[in-house]
Design a protein around this nucleic acid. Structure first.
Lengths: 210, 210
DNA sequence: TATAAAGTGTAACCAATGTTACTGTGTGCT
DNA sequence: AGCACACAGTAACATTGGTTACACTTTATA
């Protein structure tokens, strides 16, 4: 684990902290689609992403979903953190977008390190800031963009975290993430294809205009 | 200033910290409508709200606005904080919703106190968590509610921060906050009035179903 | 290979919201 | 009083997005 740690977090944390993480953290590897956290869960540990990507979703009372953003390597989930501290329930759902490797840190340490290591403190604050920025971006998309623009942005973001200009996804699953219907997505995808921005195939979309 | 400080933050901070705040903070009183911060501003100090309320807005490229949430007494703006630390620009606009009193803390102190006072650390983390929760609530409203539900929620929130079941506002200004058009708001307000939920008058809306 | 299931394309229709345009009515000012 | 202006009501219409329905194709599986 120490190798992965140094590779992804070595530039952030001093050796003493890296060693502490190595001692108390547990390595975890999950497949695509694995649900790391659900709405209402109580959280006992915080994840540091080593590789892969995790998508963060919001859900309403009726069970309708909405994709908020992706978390990638070198990042953490700041929500976890504040949930841990206040013993609160998770407000969001986290699902592995790709096969993902993480290091789980027990809650107690997290707060202890806040005072002990300046670098940890900065990391946590930076993480909060990044997450807020991404929430704001999500708000921009929903509030200011039309569905076709949101869709194209979604495709590009997804291609980004998958590091591939071809993404494997069904129209139905896109509809879930964007909180709309399959028919609407099919219609808009076809229109994007006609404009030469993508190429459609069963379970596969190639993005041309990245 | 020390009186207001103790009244609003005494239960949170130890005396030593209250004294430090008293020494370095500057008291500020602004009228309704005063813009405390704009998008793109560099921030040099962080506000602690003593009384009143501040509304936080997002804006897109075309200048269209959207209300995110209100900040009230006993609260701070966590965005400010992360902006300060990273020397980044503000992502949001802050406008006094009512006459407002605040204490401004210079950036340097903020980060110094993070290590020095556990209570300050908790306050900051709590504030981040609260702000994220409110952003999520904003997302819920935009993504999952219809315009008439959003409107009624808006009216209730506004009544809350104004501590009054009658709010003074024009249909046009509501339209700005909810990022829609005046005609749509007038139409929906009239429908809410017909349902017996509000009473409409020029520049004034009384909320019955609080 | 037969059959079922999942995925996609598309038409027709509906509902919600946005737009344009015009009317009337208070309010403040001269 | 007379005038200008901000504010509100409302009709008519356009657009976007959501819904229903059905046909067709590919993939999985008995």
């Amino acid at each position: 684990m120490i190798t992965e740690l140094k590779e992804n977090y070595g530039y952030l944390f001093e050796d003493a902290l890296l060693n502490e993480i190595n001692n108390v953290g547990t390595f975890k590897e999950v497949p695509e689609g694995y649900m790391l956290m659900d709405i209402g869960d109580y959280i006992k540990s915080m994840p540091l992403l080593v590789s892969g990507a995790v998508k963060i979703l919001r859900e309403d009372d009726k069970g309708d979903e909405l994709l908020l953003y992706f978390i990638e390597r070198g990042d953490t989930c700041a929500m976890t953190l504040s949930c841990c501290m206040g013993q609160k329930k998770s407000e969001i759902r986290a699902v592995a977008e790709t096969p993902t490797k993480l290091i789980m840190i027990p809650v107690e340490k997290m707060s202890e390190w806040m005072s002990k290591y300046k670098s940890w403190q900065n990391f946590i604050l930076q993480s909060y800031h990044d997450r807020m920025t991404e929430l704001l971006e999500a708000i921009d998309s929903i509030a200011f963009l039309k569905m076709d623009e949101r869709l194209f942005k979604y495709l590009k973001d997804k291609a980004m975290v998958n590091r591939n200009d071809e993404i494997q996804v069904t129209h139905q699953n896109i509809a879930f993430d964007l909180h709309t219907s399959r028919v609407v997505i099919s219609r808009l995808l076809k229109s994007l294809e006609n404009k030469g921005k993508i190429i459609l195939n069963r379970n596969n979309i190639k993005i041309l205009d990245l």
